[in-house]
Design a protein around this nucleic acid. Structure first.
Length: 271
DNA sequence: CGGCCCCTGACG
DNA sequence: CGTCAGGGGCCG
């Protein structure tokens, strides 16, 4: 569910409530959420540690601990993070709870149970997948796109979804980026003209940056929605709008599937 | 690469 | 009831 802009929202909204907290107690209600260590070891080694920073890379979040160890979280489709007082009733599928010394709790709620956590010591190799990510959208250069898009026969949308190429783009923003560039999501990467590649280079960070801005919500609003208040619907041009008129030309948008993922585009505006 | 899997819940 | 969901891993 969350793509880079949503994950960034989670980070910015929660950081003030998480950083400088000491983890007094850990409750793991779904053992498999912890990937690389036994849940009992996770509890043992993380309890008592202090969080000193909260960062994001692509769709991964990292809670940095005072000694240099760190926790990696990936929300996948339905994972959410909230900070609540301990007396607030638990939502269904509250799979992980970090209780802080001040009584507040960082809660990981995930109905489908796809979200994952990792624990790494400072010297350990990070096996979460973060190390294999491509550059953040704002760090992508035109030359980089030339090397990774123009050389590929794969559909441009599939390439945009590949986290090894650019980090953080998901199904919504891949469609939105293709719309802004005016290319069909099915176009082979190598079929893009230089002009289209330049547009793509501009629109990748532009679209992601815009939605980070749209998502900015006060903590109270975020808390009210239990960490799902992304509020991007009004700003989406194609995603979720199959059959509705294109906001640019009025023709009905086409819904289709590309590599198991739903896709929407305008047959008139996207060549 | 495409296809299937991991899961629960919302919707038609 | 079937289908779909904003993620990613694994398998041939």
């Amino acid at each position: 569910m969350p793509e880079l802009p949503e994950v960034e929202t989670v980070r910015t909204v929660l950081a003030p409530f998480v950083v400088k907290q000491t983890i007094q107690k850990i409750t793991i209600n779904l053992p498999k959420v912890v990937v690389n260590v036994k849940p009992s070891d996770f509890v043992k080694v993380v309890t008592g540690q202090k969080i000193v920073d909260f960062t994001r890379r692509g769709k991964f979040l990292t809670l940095h601990l005072a000694g240099g160890d760190y926790l990696v979280v990936h929300l996948r489709m339905t994972g959410t993070l909230t900070v609540e007082r301990a007396d607030v009733p638990y939502a269904k599928h509250t799979n992980m709870i970090l209780t802080f010394a001040d009584g507040q709790e960082l809660r990981f709620v995930d109905s489908r149970g796809f979200g994952r956590w990792w624990y790494f010591t400072s010297g350990q190799t990070d096996t979460s997948g973060q190390l294999q990510l491509g550059p953040e959208p704002e760090a992508v250069t035109l030359n980089y796109l030339r090397d990774h898009i123009l050389t590929r026969k794969t559909a441009i949308k599939t390439l945009l979804l590949d986290q090894h190429i650019v980090a953080g783009i998901g199904n919504i923003y891949a469609d939105e980026i293709c719309f802004r560039v005016g290319i069909r999501p099915t176009r082979a990467g190598c079929s893009l003209t230089l002009a289209e590649l330049e547009k793509l280079h501009a629109q990748i960070p532009a679209v992601i940056g815009e939605f980070i801005q749209f998502h900015h919500v006060p903590f109270a609003v975020y808390a009210q929605s239990k960490g799902t208040s992304y509020q991007n619907d009004a700003n989406l041009r194609v995603y979720g709008r199959a059959g509705l008129p294109c906001q640019k030309c009025g023709q009905p948008l086409i819904g289709t599937r590309i590599g198991q993922r739903s896709s929407v585009y305008c047959a008139h505006c996207q060549k």
